[in-house]
Design a protein around this nucleic acid. Structure first.
Length: 431
RNA sequence: UCCGAAAUAGCUCAGCGGUAGAGCGGAUGGCUGUUAACCAUUAGGUCGGGGGUUCAAAUCCCUCUUUCGGAGCCA
């Protein structure tokens, strides 16, 4: 007798097998009963027939409730009316734990209730699919970078100083050394790393204490930062495009079932695997003004404007060469225009917004120091960072991907809280 | 932090001055092919907290709390 997973069921047609998992739903019809069974790898309809299984076992099967755990023995076969769909004729079953009334019913629920029951909600089909796609995105990013000579290098989460002066940080007591901060980006720590490993990336949780209340923000989210020595602005964008298109292809290839459950428009995703568009910040403002936006040169984009920029486009769009004033201090000055920096944001199509921020980094000691003084940063705490411009400085670039934003795009999920296992938001830390 | 909306059964909601309702979920019964199965019966409520107006408040007013949607900031 083989104990198998639902995903492998088609290899065992006509043989008796053993499954372990949970009851998604039960439908009773006199001497016949249908148990919708799932085990983490997939879902299958199982059929319990009273004359076949006997009075005693049939009564036992009637004790099963929604989300009870159970072991099932039976023979897989094709669905009588649906070619290509499989079901299981049950020969025996053993309840593991009978659930009392399950809080999440088959009808609709509100977001507050679902989030309070996130520990149970993750069993729902769409949530299951989101988590599977998340895993695939995570894995394919690592795979692409590993195949392109990047080495994983883990940045610290507790940091003595903010990475970027702008955002609000979570502060924690650090023994008798005053305050430490939860990292909002591992990027600055990757710059020393490239001087030993050449090309590196980190992947981990980052924290923003901003009181953001939108469907694109979490206070704790996962970010992948990559950094590469001797890579300049243009090549930086090429790496990003190669990476994102690899992720799209991998998700399409490995998650077709999940995308179907999510009702994702797969054709739209297929079209996104084509050369990305590039536009300077100046050109983007011109475009927005031509579309009727009241926006001035030198300004940053709002959520509406981001969506307008990719309106009608199937592929993602790089906005490059940003005004120095609205970007971080470490970005390299454009040699052709000292008011601009060689930074790029990647904006996903279909209104999913910014998913990558990247730039060539300033590698000249004096220029960087002047820029930091201009921003009134505490030079002492950044001394180690400035050292990188003293000891064998090289041109280098990097970028950071918000994992959840990318998963949101791949899955077509409206709200970011559904693509992370336990979302942390301004008004929610439970469960 | 700002603007807007909401809070009624376990869940989703209706009721908007005059005896608290439906669907789903639960319980019980029926049905051999169901696919948020269906049919019948049934249990289940200090109408978010506090205060006020009124003969009478879930309903009108004030206040507090909580949540949702959006903005800003960003990934």
């Amino acid at each position: 007798m083989n104990t198998i997973f639902v995903k492998d069921i088609k290899d065992y047609l006509g043989q008796e097998i053993h499954l372990r998992g949970w009851v998604r739903n039960v439908r009773k019809s006199g001497k016949l009963m249908f148990i919708i069974f799932r085990d983490g790898t997939g879902t299958i309809q199982t059929v319990v027939y009273k004359p076949g299984i006997g009075e005693e076992k049939f009564e036992l099967s009637k004790t099963l409730t929604i989300e009870s755990s159970v072991e099932i023995w039976g023979t897989p076969k094709e669905h009588p009316n649906k070619p290509g769909v499989y079901e299981l004729d049950v020969t025996d079953l053993k309840p593991v734990c009978i659930s009392p009334e399950y809080p999440i019913s088959k009808k609709e629920h509100g977001p507050d209730f679902l989030l309070s029951n996130r520990h149970l909600w993750i069993r729902a089909p769409k949530q299951w699919a989101n988590l599977k796609v998340r895993h695939t995105v995570y894995h394919s990013i690592s795979e692409y970078l590993n195949n392109n000579s990047f080495t994983r290098f883990d940045s610290p989460i507790l940091t003595p100083n903010p990475c970027e002066g702008s955002t609000t940080l979570f502060e924690v007591e650090y023994f008798d050394q005053g305050s430490a901060y939860l990292s909002q980006s591992g990027q600055l720590y990757l710059e020393p790393a490239i001087m030993t490993l050449g090309r590196v990336y980190d992947f981990g949780p980052v924290f923003r204490a901003e009181k953001s209340k939108t469907r694109k923000h979490l206070t704790e989210f996962w970010m992948m930062d990559a950094e590469a020595a001797f890579v300049e602005h243009q090549e930086n964008m090429q790496i990003q495009e190669g990476l994102i298109r690899y992720v799209i292809r991998t998700v399409l290839e490995k998650c077709s079932n999940e995308l179907e459950i999510l009702e994702r428009d797969v054709e739209q995703l297929k079209k996104a695997d084509a050369p990305f568009k590039v536009m300077t910040h100046y050109e983007a403002i011109e475009l927005l003004r031509s579309k009727g936006c009241e926006i001035e040169h030198g300004e940053d984009f709002g959520a509406n404007e981001e969506a307008l920029l990719t309106e009608g486009s199937d592929v993602a769009l790089f906005i490059e060469k940003w005004p120095k004033k609205i970007k971080a201090f470490y970005m390299k000055q454009d040699p052709e225009n000292p008011d601009l920096v060689l930074g790029s944001d990647l904006i996903a199509p279909e209104g999913f917004g910014e998913i990558i921020g990247g730039s060539q980094r300033e590698d000249d000691y004096d220029v960087l120091l002047a820029r930091m003084e201009e921003e009134k940063l505490d030079i002492q705490t950044y001394e180690w960072y400035l050292d990188m411009r003293k000891y064998g400085s090289v041109p280098h670039s990097g970028f950071g991907i918000g994992l959840e934003r990318l998963v949101q795009w791949m899955t077509g999920t409206k709200h970011i809280r559904e693509v992370i296992p336990f979302p942390r938001m301004i008004y929610r830390i439970y469960p």
